[in-house]
Each structure stands twice: as structure tokens, then as C-alpha cells.
């Protein structure tokens, strides 16, 4: 019963979204649904935070392996929530200095800003930067010109890697740039041709395929044929 009602709800709001794309007078309906959707998305962040807290507290109370790290996560999470909600160190809005919480939560110098600037930013960006090392190691170990397909992949990577930096310009600078019959052979131009022609064609075909796939799966949800997102009925 509950699953049927939920599937009907999904169909109704989905069809409203489809209808409003074609009937402008009904735009207000779509706007209302999307507005609720956006608020719900914000509540999902609260759910995410609460879930993180729950999982880590369970780990701490069970003294599971690595519970000390969970304690760090929970402490930092609670500190962030505390200073963020109370806007610690952020001054009120100059137009309303009598309302303590009227200021910018991310004001430079505030505690919330400090956590963003000096904890979240450096760690997340370094985590992303780590991949530069691993991609180098993987290229050394795994990039082998074993067959035609691998040669094409490798050759393209070479041209793009060299053509996008100044070394590519230097390597093929002997090819006259003003002669259109041969200038395309310069690495920087070859890189452009790969992106504009071959990559363009490959990505476009994937895009068309994916669009058809998404349209089909969306349609199944809209007509209630696909209910897998609701989980099993057990």
C-alpha cells in the first residue's frame, strides 16, 4: 500500500514537471514542486550530517577498530555545527547590528570561515592532488601499446599531453604556421583537431546514447514500471 502510494506520488510530481515544460500557464505548478524539491535537498544535508553522527557514535560506543578517528570526526563535526549555527566570530549585519545572528556566517575571521579556509580547503584539495602521483605511477605500469586500440589511446594521450603545453609548440615549431596545408601537423593544432573532431564525435555518440537511456529509465519511473528506488517490499 505504502509503496503504491509512493509510486503514485513519484508519477504525479514527475508528470507535473513534464507538463510544465510544454504548458507555460502551468509553470506555477512546476515552480512549486521544484521549490519543495530544493528545500528537501537542503534537509537531505541535515539527514546526511545526522547519519554521519549516528554511525560514528555507534562505532565509538562499540569501541570498533579506529574508533578514535570516529571520535575526531564527531568532535570536528559538532564544533563545525556549533560555530556555524551560532556564527561564532562573525559580526552582525551593519544594517542590523542589534541582531546577533544577522551577519555573514562565512565572514572572514570567523570560526566557521577558519574551519573552511584552514581545514576543509587544504585537505580536500590535497586529496584531489594526490591523484597526480597515482596517475603517473599507473601510466608507467599499465599504459602498454599492446594492440591498435591501445596504440590509438596512447598516441592521443601523447599528442594531447604535449600539445597543451609549450613543449609541444617547441617540438613542432619547424612546421610553418602560416601554411594551412601543413600547419595542422603542429602538435598544438593536432591536439585541437583531436578534441574538435575525434573526441567530439565519440563524446557526442555517448551523449546521444546516454540521453536515450535516461529518457527510457525516466519514463519507466513516470509510468510506475520502475519502483526499484523504493527498495524491496519485504
Amino acid at each position: 500500500m505504502g509503496r503504491n502510494a509512493a509510486a503514485v506520488l513519484a508519477s504525479i510530481v514527475g508528470l507535473v514537471m513534464v507538463l510544465t515544460a510544454f504548458a507555460r500557464p502551468l509553470e506555477f505548478l512546476g515552480t512549486a514542486v521544484v521549490d519543495w524539491f530544493n528545500v528537501l535537498a537542503a534537509i537531505a544535508f541535515v539527514l546526511g550530517g545526522a547519519n554521519l553522527l549516528k554511525m560514528n557514535l555507534l562505532k565509538i560506543s562499540a569501541r570498533d577498530a579506529g574508533w578514535g578517528y570516529s571520535a575526531v570526526t564527531v568532535s570536528v563535526f559538532l564544533i563545525t555545527i556549533g560555530v556555524g549555527l551560532l556564527k561564532v566570530g562573525a559580526h552582525p549585519d551593519p544594517l542590523h547590528p542589534d541582531v546577533a545572528l544577522s551577519g555573514d556566517k562565512e565572514a572572514v575571521g570567523g570560526a566557521f570561515w577558519w574551519l573552511y579556509e584552514y581545514a576543509m580547503s587544504p585537505i580536500t584539495s590535497t586529496l584531489f592532488a594526490l591523484l597526480a602521483f597515482y596517475v603517473a605511477s599507473a601510466a608507467f605500469r599499465a599504459f602498454r601499446a599492446k594492440n591498435t586500440a591501445a596504440i590509438l589511446l596512447l598516441g592521443t594521450a601523447f599528442v594531447v599531453l604535449l600539445g597543451r603545453v609549450y613543449v609541444g609548440v617547441l617540438l613542432t615549431s619547424w612546421i610553418p604556421a602560416d601554411n594551412a596545408w601543413v600547419s595542422w601537423l603542429r602538435l598544438e593544432n593536432l591536439s585541437g583537431i583531436i578534441m574538435g573532431v575525434f573526441n567530439n564525435a565519440g563524446t557526442r555518440a555517448m551523449m546521444i546514447g546516454i540521453a536515450i537511456g535516461i529518457a527510457a529509465t525516466s519514463l519507466k519511473i513516470l509510468v510506475g514500471l520502475d519502483r526499484s528506488y523504493l527498495g524491496s517490499s519485504d
Partner: peptide, 20 residues
């Protein structure tokens, strides 16, 4: 561990103040 805690808290607070 630090970044997991800060990030989860950060998204939650920003969603609260800016949307909720």
C-alpha cells in the same frame, strides 16, 4: 577524519542558513 567532520558540518550549516 577531520575533513569528513568539517565537510559534513559545513554542508549542513550552509544548507540551513542559505535555504532552510
Amino acid at each position: 577524519s577531520v575533513v569528513v567532520g568539517v565537510s559534513a558540518g559545513y554542508w549542513m550549516i550552509v544548507a540551513t542558513w542559505d535555504t532552510l
